[in-house]
């Protein structure tokens, strides 16, 4: 009988990603309802020493696979390692992050474990002893309640949505042999080009300052960059701005770009096409600055200013500087 709530913890270069603690805190909550244990799987190289940190967030036991073949992450190696630990222990629930790595790994595990997965969930709970996963579909134009008929019941959780609650447990570290066979490892990471800007990725950012067609051109973004620097924010863009070549593809927020959920989303000169609204409506607080009072973005905004953004934004930046000084 499948039992226990498991997470796949995520680390890079020997440091946990924040999502790992969000997963642990959420797993703890579910496990307490079920009266079961929380276990984590952690894969990497030279990471045994950090494994115990998960105890602080409610993990009872950490299964660690420590091997040079597990760093950097490849689907081949990590899927084999995680699948082995899961098959040997038969958990009822398996949670991963809906990060780039978690999405890649979780989907491969669906095939390996012959089970079902709810991707990019914004809520998970226990109903009648089973997992009920709630997730946006159509980029948030509607939501689905997902139920499972196989084990483990898998869900990937949207970063930045679930709180990382401290709840100290033993965090006992158990090593396991991932039994990697060199013949299975086909993909190779040749190069990691790090973004040196020091900005959080849009999908992980706490604050996003986003610009649309109203920015009038690539040079218009300078005032958004200034505001972002003051707030420690990441700059995003609408599809119109990206398609016009004003901003790189990686900045696009929306149904065909990044789906984001910051604490604060400031939309400047963004009209709010439905496919843009779909990508940012799970933001906690939304601010719209637009001179068109009829712009659909105002239907989603918690706070709005109808005015010329080129007058408002520099003033707002000054005010924020004062407040944060």
């Amino acid at each position: 009988m499948a039992k226990g709530v498991w997470i796949v913890a995520e680390q890079r270069d020997g440091a946990f990603r924040k999502i790992s603690f969000e997963l642990a805190g959420t797993a703890r909550k579910l496990a307490d309802v079920l009266g079961e244990e929380v276990c984590a799987v952690l894969c990497g190289s030279g990471i045994e020493g950090i494994a115990g940190q998960l105890g602080k967030y409610g993990v009872d036991k950490v299964f660690v696979a420590d091997s040079p073949a597990l760093e950097p992450y490849t689907t081949d190696a990590h899927a084999v390692a995680v699948a082995k630990a899961v098959k040997e222990n038969d958990p009822a629930i398996l949670l991963l992050g809906a990060s780039t790595q978690g999405k890649d790994l979780s989907a491969r595990l669906v095939g390996k474990l012959a089970t079902g997965l709810a991707t990019d969930c914004t809520d998970v709970k226990i109903a009648d002893g089973k997992l009920l996963a709630i997730r946006p579909m159509y980029a948030g134009k509607c939501f689905g309640e997902v139920v499972f008929s196989t084990f483990p019941q898998m869900a990937s959780l949207r970063p930045n949505v679930f709180p990382a609650v401290e709840n100290a447990k033993a965090g006992v570290v158990v090593k396991f042999d991932p039994a990697l066979d060199a013949g299975q490892l086909k993909t190779k990471v040749l190069e990691v080009q790090k973004d040196t800007s020091g900005k959080a990725d849009l999908t992980e950012a706490n604050v996003i300052v986003s610009g649309g067609r109203g920015m009038k051109g690539p040079e218009g973004y300078a005032i958004l960059e200034e505001l972002a620097a003051v707030l420690g924010a990441t700059v995003g863009a609408s599809r119109a701005a990206v398609d016009a070549g004003w901003r790189p593809q990686s900045d696009q927020v929306g149904q065909t770009g990044k789906i984001v959920s910051p604490n604060l989303y400031i939309a400047c000169g963004v009209s709010g096409a439905i496919q843009h609204l779909a990508g940012m409506s799970s933001s906690k607080i939304i601010v719209a600055i637009n001179k068109d009072a009829e712009a659909p973005i105002f239907t989603k905004a918690d706070y709005g200013i109808v005015d010329d953004l080129f007058k408002i934004v520099p003033e707002f930046t000054k005010e924020c500087k004062k407040l944060l000084a």
Binding site: V110, A114, T115, G116, L117, A118, P136, M137, G140, K141, C142, F143, G144, E145, V146, V147, F148, S149, T150, Q153, M154, S281
Partner: peptide, 12 residues
């Protein structure tokens, strides 16, 4: 078979 199934669709 549907190992994972959307049991209910809900408006946002």
């Amino acid at each position: 078979t549907a190992n994972a199934k959307v049991a209910k669709f809900i408006p946002p």
